[in-house]
Amino acid sequence: MMDQESNEIVISLKKRISELISLYQKSKEEKESLIHEKLELMEQLETLSREKKELEHHYDTLKLAKSLAGNSEDSHQAKLKINRIVREIDKCIALLNR
């Protein structure tokens, strides 16, 4: 009688261990899948961030062009902005020449 109970316990334990191993494998595969998905999303975020910067640059350029073609007040603002940019470039050149 004890042998049969022992066998049943061992069989039950083997079954539970097998189930745990199976769950572990599934969790491991899911983790790897999520890591891969995370990397893809990070790449996508980086690409979208670059695109956003490019679009912002194009927008600023268009805004500047529009202000140059616009009325005198807009032209004055554009000239001020151009002067500010030229001063910044001059500062950069001075720093590079050091």
Rank of each mutant, 00 (worst) to 15 (best):
K52Y: 14
D3G: 07
S72V: 14
I35C: 07
C92T: 11
A94D: 12
S33E: 06
A78S: 02
A94I: 08
N97Y: 04
S72A: 11
K38F: 12
E73W: 03
Q77W: 01
K91R: 10
N97M: 12
I21V: 09
L48A: 02
L48I: 03
S22N: 06
E88H: 04
K26T: 06
K31F: 13
L20E: 11
N71V: 04
K14S: 10
E46N: 11
E37N: 05
K31Q: 14
K63S: 10
E40A: 03
K26P: 03
K15H: 14
T61D: 03
E37V: 03
L96N: 10
K52W: 08
R84Q: 08
L64H: 01
R84A: 05
R50N: 09
E43G: 02
Y24M: 09
L20F: 12
R50G: 05
E5C: 09
H58M: 13
L13H: 07
R84Y: 04
Q44Y: 11
S22T: 06
Y24T: 09
D74C: 03
L23E: 14
K53P: 01
Y24R: 11
L41A: 02
L41Q: 00
R50P: 01
S72W: 05
K52L: 15
Q25N: 13
R87P: 00
L96K: 13
R84T: 08
R98P: 00
N7Q: 10
I11C: 05
E51H: 04
I17G: 10
E8H: 12
L20N: 12
Q77G: 00
L64C: 00
E51W: 06
K14D: 07
R84N: 08
T47H: 11
S75V: 06
H57F: 15
E88W: 01
L62W: 13
M2N: 14
I11N: 08
V10L: 12
K38C: 09
L39H: 13
L68S: 00
A69E: 03
E54F: 07
L95C: 10
L96A: 12
T61W: 00
L45D: 07
K15D: 10
D3Q: 08
R50W: 04
D3V: 14
Q4T: 13
M1W: 14
M1Y: 14
I82T: 02
K91Q: 14
L68Y: 02
H57Y: 15
R16S: 10
Y59W: 15
G70I: 00
K26N: 10
L68M: 05
V86K: 05
K31D: 09
Y24G: 08
H57P: 04
K28M: 08
K52T: 08
I85R: 01
H57G: 08
H36N: 14
D60W: 13
K14T: 10
I21W: 03
K66Q: 05
R98Q: 06
A78E: 00
H36P: 02
L80I: 10
A78F: 02
L68P: 00
E46P: 02
G70F: 00
H36F: 05
S75Y: 05
E19H: 04
I35R: 13
S18F: 06
